[in-house]
Design a protein around this nucleic acid. Structure first.
Length: 721
DNA sequence: TAATCAGCTTTTTTT
DNA sequence: AAGCTGATTA
């Protein structure tokens, strides 16, 4: 068979990665080196050259988007649908396994997926029920603890009863949390992975089945795998050593959520016969941009060692702009984008990247003022919206009355006279007898503990839910959804809300019916679920895209994290300041700085033609004025790759190594001697002197009322006047 | 029971 | 600045 089309157009390293008989392989793929291409061609190679059936291939990604893209590209290349092939996210595949093997796992067969928001609420309620001080054990931290344990493969019973009372309590909560999830038939995201692991660890027959079925297992973004994901992959492939992974240690930016770069090293030890291929030729960026990225990332220790190169042009220098403040920074960026568009370029080819979501606001304001359309990534997604989650909760409870999370959410939404006191009694009863909230509510309606009014309200709710679940039997999916929404009274409830908020919510609810209409039943391979249950699982596992019109030509705004995997001809990396990027927390913590630097590397390598780096000399943060220093990352880029940009003209200033550009000579307090300032406690005064930089910066101020004082800038609330 | 107000906290994100 | 929580009030 002629296989030239699989290898044609690939460079040597890519060919090496795609072809060959090695079962295990580690492909270190730098940014823009054709990573997805290699994966897709590898799958084509396996099928067409080695004759592997689509059933014998398992391909795992982290996001639904990546999975969808991979499936599409494989199909385009093979000119045939590959529905039998398992391509999906870790969570999607785990979910599928759990559905198929719920009996072996002792799971309720109608279990539902608990998303992180519902998990958070669940934990909050649990803390209250257990009478735990949520100041000492904040629900966020508890959630983090539980998920971190699960990511490491540890159940509550595995945790040693240590002496530390704080941890002791955490373990206690974890134990209770597991009980309540099991009773409510709920499985959170981390639990999906943990159960999937336990399934093949504890059931030899199941393990052998999948070991035999999957002749090849391929993993994308391997540097982002956590402990449990690796353990799962390891079990699946330890016999045949048939694990093919693609990743980039320099782009590992999710350590804070459990990703373990060390998995790359473990892979090398665990699969001694593996092939190692480095993809270093970059097809995306100019060599100037690559040189800058390489220079920055070199400052990290413990890298696998990899250097991007291109045979393309040098391209333009990287532009550095020092905004006088954050508004000036935003003004500058928008101004440059306007220029770009005026020269006939697409606005969609320009991206504004920032470290934290809060920074998008100013850019949005200036873009709006200039009438430039834009799209903000991140933020709340369709299935996460309050009104949508409420509607989904009605469906969840109607199909699964034991679902306590759903019960809590809608028992008094819309308000129907069931107050906190009544719900409290329901909770107490449920807890005392170890039954679901639904059962407890039913029992209370029969009993005498509640006032007549409360019984009325509560039994009204019970009757409503019975009606709704009765009506679900016949109709097709979108009609079911439509019916639930109208019966629930949510439309009227949100219509009453004042302002445009209510209107938007009603529209979203209508959109939910639409989403149901477009839902393809069986696409996720979940034939064992009813159509509605399948739709609900889809809503939890794939929260949908963020708002925004994909088809309009608009500027792209997103965090550096969400930019990973994307590329743009024109990129603005903004807010490149100490304390913001790298973030304060990463500077304080050990080992976090390297990850921050990798994030910078990701940011730089998003740019194809032109990269702007901007920072502000003064910035309003949390309603406070701050005077940050330019980020250390700017200093790590060789000066000859940078040109400083001034207000209305570009000035290339010769720079020497001893005196990096963008740094002021004098102490960096950001205040001038003689300047009038305002302090919240001491009132008005005049700056006499200043010294130190960054966190150590101090100013001496002669206050009109209380005389001269030295103040730490980091703490003093000084405002310029 | 529901609405209003004052005080407190702040990365990054997918599933 | 803004959003959320808890407490207070109508």
């Amino acid at each position: 068979m002629d296989v030239s089309h699989i290898l044609d157009g690939l460079n040597d390293a890519q060919r090496d990665a795609v072809s060959g008989e090695e079962q295990a392989a580690l492909i270190l793929a730098g940014a823009g080196s054709g990573k997805t291409r290699v994966l897709v061609h590898r799958i084509a190679w396996l099928m067409q050259v080695e004759g592997v059936s689509p059933y014998g291939i398992l391909a795992v990604t982290f996001t639904n988007k990546a999975a969808g893209e991979m499936r599409e590209r494989v199909q385009a290349m093979l000119q045939t649908p590959v529905s039998g092939m398992w391509i999906g996210t870790f969570h999607g595949i785990a979910h599928r396994l759990l559905r198929m093997h719920s009996k072996e796992l002792g799971l309720p067969d109608a279990f539902q997926v608990l998303d992180s928001d519902d998990q958070f609420r669940m934990i909050k309620r649990l803390l209250k029920a257990m009478n735990i001080d949520d100041a000492r054990w904040p629900p966020r931290q508890v959630q983090w603890f539980i998920n971190a344990q699960k990511d490491e493969g540890r159940r509550a019973k595995h945790l040693a009863a240590g002496a530390d009372p704080f941890e002791q309590k955490m373990i206690e909560i974890y134990t209770e949390y597991e009980v309540i999830c099991q009773r409510s038939g709920l499985v959170d995201f981390a639990e999906l992975l943990l159960r999937a692991h336990e399934l093949i660890r504890d059931n030899v027959a199941v393990l052998e089945h999948y070991q035999q079925r999957f002749k090849h297992v391929l993993v994308d973004e391997f540097q982002d795998t956590n402990t449990i994901q690796y353990a799962w992959l390891r079990l699946l492939t330890q016999e045949a050593e048939n694990l093919y992974v693609v990743g980039d240690d320099d782009q590992s930016i999710y350590g804070w959520r459990g990703a373990k770069i060390e998995n790359i090293h473990r892979f090398q030890k665990d699969y001694p016969k593996h092939k190692l291929v480095k993809l270093e030729q970059n097809y995306r960026s100019t060599s100037t941009i690559l040189n800058a990225a390489n220079a920055v990332i070199t400052h990290n220790d413990s890298r696998m060692g990899k250097e991007l190169w291109t045979d393309g042009e040098d391209g333009e220098l990287i532009s550095l702009y020092a905004g006088f403040n954050d508004q000036d920074e935003a003004r500058f960026v928008v101004d440059r984008i306007q220029h770009w568009a005026e020269q006939g370029n697409l606005r969609a080819e320009a991206a504004i990247l920032y470290r934290s979501n809060a920074q998008s606001r100013l850019f949005e304001e200036y873009l709006m003022m200039s009438g430039i359309p834009y799209r903000v990534y991140g933020g709340q997604r369709f299935f996460e919206r309050l009104e949508i989650k409420n509607a989904l909760a009605y469906m969840q409870l109607a199909t699964h009355l034991e679902n306590d999370a759903a019960f809590e959410r809608i028992v008094n939404t819309p308000t129907r006279g069931i107050g906190t006191r009544t719900v409290e009694l329901v909770r107490e009863r449920a807890r005392a007898q170890g039954i679901s909230l639904w059962q407890a509510a039913n029992a209370l309606c029969e009993g005498v503990e509640l006032s007549g009014r409360a019984v009325n309200a509560l039994s009204g709710f019970i009757k409503l839910m019975r009606d709704i679940s009765g009506n679900l039997k016949s109709a097709v999916l979108f009609e079911q959804v439509n019916q639930v929404i109208s019966q629930s009274g949510l439309i009227e409830f949100h219509k009453k809300e004042k302002g445009e908020k209510g209107e938007a919510r009603v529209e979203n609810l209508e959109e939910l019916v639409n989403a149901a209409r477009q839902f393809v039943y069986g696409a996720a391979g979940e034939e064992e679920l009813s159509e509605l249950d399948s739709f609900l699982a889809h809503a939890a596992l794939e929260a949908g895209d963020t708002q925004g019109d994909k088809f309009e030509d608009c500027v792209q705004l997103m965090t550096l994290h969400s930019a990973k995997g994307l590329e743009f001809p024109l990129v603005f990396m903004t807010g490149v300041e100490e304390g913001l990027f790298p973030s304060q927390r990463s500077v304080d913590g050990i080992g976090r700085l390297e990850e921050e630097r990798r994030l910078c590397y990701v940011g730089i390598t998003r740019a194809m033609q032109q990269l702007y780096i901007t920072y502000a000399e003064s910035r309003r943060l949390h309603g406070q004025e701050s005077y940050p220093m330019p980020s250390r990352f700017i200093r790590e880029i060789p000066a000859e790759l940078i040109q400083e940009v001034r207000l209305n003209a570009r000035v290339s200033r010769p720079v020497t190594a001893e005196q990096p550009i963008g740094f002021r000579d004098e102490s960096d307090a950001g205040f001038r001697v003689g300047q009038r300032v305002m302090h919240t406690k001491f009132g008005e005064g005049m700056v006499l002197n200043h010294e130190g930089r960054g966190a150590q910066a101090r100013v001496q101020v002669n206050f009109d009322a209380v005389g001269s004082k030295w103040l730490m800038l980091a703490y003093a609330k000084l405002e310029t006047m």
